[in-house]
Simulated assay, not measured.
Amino acid sequence: MLALSDTQIATLVEQIVQLLVTRRQAAYRCTLDELANGLPRAAYLYHGTLAVTQVDAPFLRRLAALDRGVPTVAAVLAAWHYGMQVTLSLHPRWLCHVPVRRLANLQVSLCDDAGNPVHLSPGRLLGYRQVSTLTPGWLLLEPGALISPLAADVLAQGHLHWIRTE
């Protein structure tokens, strides 16, 4: 058995850490149509984030249901299995169709096609605490969700565009 010196071990550990940092910072970008063909193995090895563009409402519903029979959902599940973060980009016209409660339970980040974040609020009551720390972008609320007066004041400032989903 080959014994390594302390210097060799330190060098090896440093190289491994550098590879992991590089992987975490790299994003594999593809469209929803490209995702249907699955991800190449290199995507799992060299990328820490899967960024999917041109996502639509039917895909979001299938993802929220974890429908493994759909190739695009299976690819996202595989990405999660390999420790990748998932970011989905969608056109604002699809925002009212997002299944807020079910997607909020998944490890997924949403943004619009301009890169503005989409925040999900799955609760029945939206208070000041929930909106005060949000970055400008979109806020999706459950149907029938109530908004406290202080939260309404923050929303009225116009930094967050809010939508009640279907």
Score class of each variant (00 low, 15 high):
G137F: 04
V21P: 00
D33H: 12
P149H: 10
L134A: 03
G69D: 10
Q8P: 03
R29N: 12
G123F: 04
N105A: 15
L139Q: 05
A74Q: 12
I163D: 06
V98D: 02
Q25V: 02
A104L: 05
P143E: 13
V21Q: 12
V154N: 05
E34K: 08
D112V: 01
A10F: 08
H47C: 15
T11H: 12
T31Q: 03
R29L: 10
W162E: 02
S5D: 14
L90E: 03
A10Q: 14
G38M: 05
L134Q: 02
L103R: 11
G137C: 06
G38D: 06
G115C: 03
Y28V: 02
L95P: 00
P149W: 12
V70M: 07
L106G: 03
I163R: 13
D33W: 03
C30G: 03
T165G: 07
A114I: 01
L35V: 06
P143T: 13
L19N: 07
A74I: 03
D67S: 08
P58A: 04
P122A: 09
L77G: 00
L125K: 11
T133W: 03
W94G: 01
T165V: 15
S121E: 08
L140E: 03
V98T: 08
T87N: 09
D112P: 04
W94K: 00
L12K: 10
T31W: 07
L35G: 01
R102H: 11
L12R: 14
D113G: 02
L141K: 01
R41N: 14
L125Y: 14
A152F: 08
V108N: 06
S89Q: 13
V118M: 04
P40S: 06
V17L: 08
A27P: 04
L90V: 04
Y46K: 11
L19W: 08
R61A: 04
I9E: 11
L66R: 15
A156S: 15
W80P: 00
L120R: 05
T11G: 07
H97F: 15
H47P: 00
W162Q: 09
M1P: 15
W94F: 13
A156I: 01
T53K: 09
V98Y: 05
P136M: 09
R164W: 13
V13E: 07
M1K: 05
L50E: 07
Y46E: 11
L20Q: 14
D112N: 02
A151H: 12
R29T: 14
L60R: 06
L106H: 11
Q15P: 00
Y28L: 04
V52N: 05
G158F: 11
V70K: 08
L60F: 10
H161P: 00
G83E: 12
P92K: 02
C111D: 00
L139S: 02
G158M: 10
P71L: 10
R124T: 13
S121I: 00
D56A: 06
A36R: 15
